[in-house]
């Protein structure tokens, strides 16, 4: 752990450079550039609202309901999907210079986080357009950002290591992400869980993303102060993920070079 922090500090410029490189390359030759990080969720929201708001009439403020959910989930999706191939993608570098391996998944997670902050603008824009006044509890939202950041980082560590030995994971993961998205109430109302068969809702209750999305919605939309239990569940999942992720990465990192 001490080595980890020391290395983060030593390689902070590399992290910074890689992140700006990703931003530059991602929006290279697009007219609107980084604005797409704001526009994309807005456009997506329009499509989803057009399709689903009439189906799920129970949801008040459907655009905001969707946006708050997708903000958290898309961050997780983007961070882990990026981390998944981050070490493989940097194999030319790893083969020639010694760089601590965790830098790469960490960088992808930070990159996704920066992107999420831009997408947060989209949420604020919708607040203004719909004249939605969030309650004061929104000050709790940095907590959930931190929780989901740590959680995604752990999953990212795990995936980046495992994908080196088994490339199947890369193909499987996009399916998994879609499944996970449907297991998280992003489009459909949370109240639907009660009418679902017990087995389905139980699976959903085992999905950590459910708690992060719910947490953020509670503080941003419904003005509910998160309980100690909510916080503990979120922290527990995040730390467990980070622990498993970093252990797997640490144990296997010396063998990476033989497989990439």
């Amino acid at each position: 752990m001490k080595v980890f922090i020391k290395n983060v500090f030593k390689y902070r410029y590399l992290l910074e450079d890689l992140t700006t490189r990703d931003l530059k390359v991602k929006y290279r030759r697009s007219l609107l550039g980084i604005l797409w990080s704001v526009l994309n969720p807005l456009l997506m929201m329009m499509v989803i609202t057009a399709v689903f708001s009439s189906i799920f009439k129970v949801v008040e403020n459907f655009p905001i309901y969707y946006l708050t959910g997708s903000l958290i989930f898309n961050f997780f999706g983007e961070a882990t999907n990026g981390a998944l191939t981050s070490i493989l993608g940097n194999s030319p570098l790893i083969k020639k210079v010694y760089v601590p391996k965790f830098i790469f998944p960490l960088e992808k997670t930070i990159f996704a986080f920066v992107n999420m902050l831009f997408s947060l603008l989209a949420v604020i824009i919708m607040f203004i357009i719909l004249r939605f006044v969030p309650s004061w509890t929104i000050v709790f939202s940095p907590f959930v950002f931190l929780y989901v950041l740590v959680f995604s980082l752990g999953v990212g560590f795990f995936l980046s290591a495992i994908s080196i030995f088994f490339r199947d994971v890369i193909h499987l993961y996009s399916v998994f992400l879609t499944a996970l998205m449907y297991m998280t109430p992003i489009i459909y109302p949370e109240s639907m869980l009660e009418s679902m068969p017990a087995i389905v809702s139980n699976v959903i209750y085992c999905n950590p993303m459910y708690y992060y999305v719910q947490y953020f919605r509670n503080v941003a939309m419904y003005g509910i102060v998160p309980s100690l239990k909510d916080n503990l569940i979120c922290i527990f999942c995040a730390l467990l993920s980070l622990l498993i992720g970093s252990l797997v990465l640490k144990k296997s990192q010396n063998k990476f070079i033989l497989y990439i």
């Binding site: 390689y11 590399l14 490189r21 390359v25 570098l93 020639k96």
Partner: peptide, 21 residues
Amino acid sequence: AGFDMELTARENIFLNGSVLG
């Protein structure tokens, strides 16, 4: 090693420098 061929030399010099620590 550590050059990103999409970037310019100027950007790469800084990137490479940070790779080397």
